[in-house]
């Protein structure tokens, strides 16, 4: 059974079609990569699926239930979480508190209970802290739990967002360029982390420009260009697909060659 399925999704900004009939699906335990040139609509697709934008057309299903138009916090409750290309970290909070926010729906939060600090609050806090500590270790940020997020480097914050998203215990995790700003060593660790998240039985949707990372851990790939799907298939097929090389990989290769 498919965890997340998008069918014929479209959205326009001021007449410009940023997404035009895009569809994909992803199963538990699978890594689906969505790639494409800058401005192809990858982030927009994430924004539509996660409830930040309302699509002008199409259908999105999570575990067989239609979710288009639901607000993000409802989707979080249904098991969908994500990270952001331009970080949405809680900059004035500590790393551990950032991850604890992800436990929001896992805690029985009653406003009055919190205000009067009923004994259950302390008990729940202990459980949550233990879980959050594990997640911080899992993304390799142990020892920095009480650092203020705003003072941490970019790469660390990307991993913090992953830990925070995992704290919601999602069925589907969507990662928007998690390797941006990482060095090769960090990228390798990240690859292992993403793979292990999928191996836990979660569905992972990955947007990334680092092709080595994409090719090494994805089960399937969807290629977007100017709001349309131009190819889909296994990594090997995509690598040799003429249209994709033309629209994206060729250009990317040339850029990397120029930079080297």
């Amino acid at each position: 059974m498919s965890s997340l399925r998008a069918h014929d999704v479209s959205i326009a900004f001021g007449g410009i079609k940023a997404l035009d009939g895009v569809g994909f699906d992803v199963m538990p335990g699978e890594v689906l990569a969505i790639i494409g040139p800058n401005g192809a609509g990858k982030t927009t697709l994430f924004n539509v699926v996660s409830g930040l934008y309302r699509p002008t057309g199409g259908h999105i299903e999570l575990d067989g239930r239609g979710i288009e138009g639901l607000p993000p916090h409802r989707l979080a409750g249904m098991g969908l979480s994500r990270t952001f290309q331009n970080l949405q970290v809680f900059t004035e909070m500590t790393l551990i508190d950032n991850v604890l926010v992800g436990r929001h729906l896992r805690e029985r939060h009653s406003f009055l209970g919190d205000l009067f600090r009923l004994p259950s609050v302390a008990r729940e806090n202990d459980t949550s802290r233990k879980r959050a500590g594990e997640l911080i270790r899992r993304v390799g940020l142990e020892g920095r739990e009480s650092a203020i997020a705003g003072t941490m480097p970019y790469g660390a914050l990307r991993r913090l967002e992953i830990a925070r998203a995992l704290a919601t215990e999602p069925q589907v995790l969507m990662l928007d360029e998690p390797a941006a700003g990482c060095n090769p060593f960090e990228t390798r660790e990240l690859a292992a982390l993403i793979r292990s998240i999928a191996d836990d039985g979660r569905a992972v949707v990955l947007v990334e420009h680092d092709m080595r990372l994409v090719m090494s851990i994805s089960d399937r790939i969807v290629v977007l260009d100017r709001g349309r799907v131009i190819a889909r298939g296994a990594p090997a097929d995509i690598r040799s697909n003429a249209t994709v090389v033309e629209a994206y990989l060729g250009r990317l290769g040339a850029e990397e060659a120029a930079r080297a």
Partner: peptide, 29 residues
């Protein structure tokens, strides 16, 4: 002072820092 370090207290500060981030974490902003 009680609110500090509870689910509610953290949710308040989270939405101050990033409403989008908070809502994706399941907070009804």
């Amino acid at each position: 002072l009680n609110l500090d370090g509870t689910t509610t207290g953290r949710a308040f500060r989270a939405l101050r820092d990033s409403e989008v981030g908070a809502s994706v974490m399941g907070i009804d902003v």
